[in-house]
C-alpha cells in the first residue's frame, strides 16, 4: 500500500514536471506568436519596409514610420556600449590579475548591488545628476546647446547600468584562462600588461565579443531609465545632444492611448516585435561567436 502511494506521488509530480517542461518550450514561441499576431494588421496595411524606414509618425492619420525610434535606439545603445566597454574591461582585468583576494571579496557585493538596483532608481539618479551634467557641462564642452535630456544622457545612464552586467560575464571569462599560459608569457620576459594584452585578452577574445553582444541586447531593451533621461521627442536626432526617442520608451509612453487610436496597438506591438527580434538575434549571435571561435582556436 505504502509503496503504491509513493508511486502515485511520483507519477503526479513527474507529470507536473513534464507539464512545466512543455510550458518552457512553448513560452518563447507563444511570445513570438502573440506579438506577430497583434502586429500582423499593421504589417499588412503599411508594409515592413515603410514601417522600418519611414520617418513620418502621425498615429492619428494612421501613418507609422519607426525610423526615428530605431535610429534613437541604435544611437543610445552604441553610445552606452562604447562608454561602458573600457570601464568593464579594465576593471575585470584588474580584479582578476592585479587585485588581491580581499579586494575581490569586497567588490563582489558592490557589483551585485549595482546589478540589483532597479532601473527606475538609475532613472531618478540620471535625472538628478546626468541631466545637469550633460546639459551644463558636456554639451557646452562640445559646443552644443542642450537641456540635458538627450541621446548622450541616455547613453551615459545606460553605460552605468550595463557595467555590473557585462563586468560579471567578463570576470567569469577571464577566470577560465589557464594560469599556466599567463605564467609562460611572464617567464619569457613579458611584462604583466604585455602578457594580459597578448595572451589573456587574445585567448578570451570570443568571450569578450559575446559579453558585449549580450550587453548590446540588454541595452537595446532597457526601458525606464533611458526613457526618463532621453527626452522622448519624435524625430531623427542630428547630434548626440538632441533628444531621442528609443523604441522601448515609445512603447512604455503610449500604452495609455494605445486602445483609443485605431491601429496604434498594432503599431506598438510591432515595436515590441522589433525589440524581441533584435535582442534574440544578438543573444544567438553571442552564442555562435563563442562556439565558432572556440572551434577555430
Amino acid at each position: 500500500m505504502y509503496l503504491k502511494a509513493r508511486k502515485i506521488k511520483d507519477r503526479i509530480s513527474g507529470g507536473w514536471v513534464q507539464l512545466v517542461l512543455v510550458f518552457v518550450f512553448v513560452l518563447p514561441l507563444g511570445i513570438l506568436a502573440s506579438l506577430l499576431y497583434k502586429s500582423w494588421l499593421i504589417m499588412q496595411t503599411t508594409g515592413i519596409g515603410d514601417l522600418l524606414f519611414s520617418s513620418v509618425w502621425r498615429p492619428l492619420a494612421g501613418e507609422f514610420g519607426f525610423f526615428p525610434f530605431i535610429i534613437s535606439s541604435i544611437w543610445v545603445t552604441i553610445l552606452g556600449l562604447l562608454i561602458t566597454a573600457p570601464i568593464c574591461l579594465f576593471t575585470a582585468i584588474y580584479l582578476t590579475y592585479y587585485g588581491s583576494n580581499r579586494l575581490s571579496v569586497f567588490m563582489r557585493p558592490v557589483i551585485d548591488i549595482l546589478a540589483g538596483i532597479p532601473s527606475v532608481i538609475y532613472g531618478v539618479w540620471g535625472v538628478l545628476i546626468i541631466i545637469p551634467f550633460t546639459g551644463r557641462f558636456l554639451a557646452p564642452l562640445f559646443g552644443y546647446e542642450s537641456t540635458g535630456f538627450s541621446i548622450m544622457a541616455g547613453g551615459l545612464v545606460l553605460a552605468i547600468m550595463l557595467i555590473p552586467f557585462i563586468l560579471n560575464i567578463l570576470i567569469e571569462i577571464f577566470r577560465t584562462v589557464p594560469v599556466e599560459q599567463y605564467e609562460a608569457s611572464l617567464s619569457l620576459g613579458a611584462t604583466q600588461w604585455e602578457s594580459i594584452k597578448h595572451v589573456v585578452v587574445r585567448r578570451s577574445f570570443p568571450g569578450i565579443v559575446s559579453a558585449f553582444a549580450l550587453g548590446l541586447s540588454r541595452a537595446f531593451g532597457e526601458t525606464i531609465a533611458v526613457l526618463m533621461v532621453v527626452g522622448n521627442v519624435v524625430g531623427v536626432p542630428e547630434n548626440l545632444f538632441q533628444p531621442g526617442y528609443p523604441l522601448p520608451a515609445l512603447i512604455a509612453n503610449n500604452y495609455g492611448e494605445m486602445l483609443s487610436i485605431p491601429m496604434f496597438d498594432s503599431a506598438l506591438m510591432f515595436a515590441a516585435l522589433i525589440l524581441l527580434v533584435v535582442v534574440v538575434f544578438f543573444n544567438l549571435l553571442s552564442r555562435f561567436v563563442i562556439i565558432y571561435l572556440e572551434k577555430r582556436q
Partner: peptide, 8 residues
C-alpha cells in the same frame, strides 16, 4: 611547466 602551456 608540468603541463605544456602553448599560447593561444
Amino acid at each position: 611547466s608540468q603541463k605544456p602551456s602553448p599560447l593561444p
